[in-house]
């Protein structure tokens, strides 16, 4: 197997380990007091981790497809664009504590014996910055793909 074939496989495996295996194992390593705090804050940890794992698995598959497809192929472009979108979805899940539609505004209610804590964290600016990064990355992917096609085209021919 050539280096060009090995690299995407290794990237996909690393993505799988980081975003599927680690979140899968994580609940076992959370200290009981932190676990109780999470339960009191009404965050659905399983749902949150399942979403991370799902996006991780999809990203790993996209990484593999992108790595194995030729740089001039439309599949490479589609995979590159999908990879950018999946990174945005991951950011939305992370900064929304599992709620993608919250767009970076996390609301928690923690009930204690005689008190109720209603917490709001506004991190929407980070979501806007992530959208900017993803938009620029998509443009870059398209330009790279165009460039690869121009380089691969026979002399005197402009690729469609």
């Amino acid at each position: 197997m050539s280096t060009q074939r090995i690299r995407p496989v290794v990237s996909a495996i690393i993505t799988l380990i980081l975003f599927v295996v680690v979140p899968y194992m994580l609940p076992e390593y959370i200290p009981p007091d932190v676990n109780q705090l999470i339960a009191e804050s009404q965050i659905d940890l399983d749902w949150f981790l399942n979403q991370i794992m799902l996006v991780g698995a999809v990203t790993a598959a996209i990484t593999l497809v992108k790595g194995l497809a030729g740089k001039t192929s439309p599949i490479w472009l589609l995979a590159a664009l999908a990879q950018n979108v999946s990174s945005l979805v991951f950011t939305l899940i992370l900064f929304g504590a599992g709620d993608i539609l919250s767009l970076g505004v996390v609301e928690l209610t923690i009930y204690a014996e005689n008190a109720t804590n209603y917490i709001v964290m506004n991190m929407r600016v980070l979501i806007y910055l992530s959208i900017a990064v993803v938009a620029l990355s998509m443009i870059r992917s398209y330009l790279r793909w165009r460039e690869a096609r121009v380089e691969a085209a026979p002399p005197g021919r402009i690729p469609a």
Partner: peptide, 16 residues
Amino acid sequence: TLYDLVSFSNIITMSG
């Protein structure tokens, strides 16, 4: 903070 771009609020309601 950060020119009002990041915020955190906590409303504590205490009974009794």
